[in-house]
Amino acid sequence: MDNPILDIRDLHVWYRTYGGYAKVLDGVNLFVHKGEKVGLVGEAGCGKTTTMRSVLRILPESQVHTPRGQILYHGQDILQMNQRELHHVRTGGVSMIFQEPAAALNPVFTVGTQITDVIKYSGLSKQEKQKDNIKNLAMQAISEVYIADPERIMNSYPNQLSGGMKQRICIAMAIVTARELLIADEPGTALDVTIQDQVHKLLRGLVEKKGMSLIMITHSLGVAREMTDRIYVMYAGNIVEVAKSGDLFRKPRHPYTLGLLESVPKLTGGGMAEGIYGQIPDYLRPPGGCRFHPRCPRAIARCQEEKPNLADLGDGHQVACFQV
């Protein structure tokens, strides 16, 4: 196998807060190959957004402390990059789509201005940045996200568009110049089910067509199943299970994954599961050993003392649990 585009190694990220450091990420390992669609699944507050924001270094730097870890982008550590190198990654390598399309677009500029700005600051050559060409690129990107009448859209303000349209525009901005990796942070969560379905299909189609890699952050196992090749399940700043999408749903192994899967209401009916006991830990004083042990139905004494590492079960299926 070739080298991964992005390789996050043992990433620790802490936040400075009242009462000390909130130790949010506790050794995250994650990699993405070229053309691969990877899902990062976990519940609110598990650190999935923190992980991906560290990739682009868009966390508030004064509040963030990274005691350990590397984020290798083509072998180069993003955490060590200077502003110029970082700018290069942001404008030419990795782009990101956020959960709230309404907040991601500036209400006082037209959609056209915002898309063309992306092109102006991209790594394209002077010639390619000629006025006509910029406009063409922008129009092309808008039609690629299946919006009719790109000319009119270019001249409209974000608040004249529906939520689904805005998210399509955000996608257009993310793909308007060539990128290798797209990070989508819950792109459909703020949208209605039918619109979410359209946006997800669009996103998957575009990524496949352009041969990009995708990291899909989501809280929904269902969305991850339909969108990705490989899924990382995250709990409280740790990756607890990694598997190919099919394997994860056919034979989930980690107690957290099992609990999560059970909790999803099923179209087949059969009533509601119990849910998972307790709640996500306080990151100021995270539990020792396995961070899931206070909520785990299968916890043993060892889980309180020792942190389980990801163990390989074959075919890329890895689980961090002593009981497996």
Partner: peptide
């Protein structure tokens, strides 16, 4: 129904297959 993301094959079978979500 066809737009709901589901987690198992059994559920997938219950979704109306031919309907594609369009428009807003």
């Amino acid at each position: 129904l066809s737009s709901i993301p589901v987690v198992s094959e059994e559920e997938e079978a219950l979704k109306p297959q031919k309907v594609v979500s369009t428009g807003e």
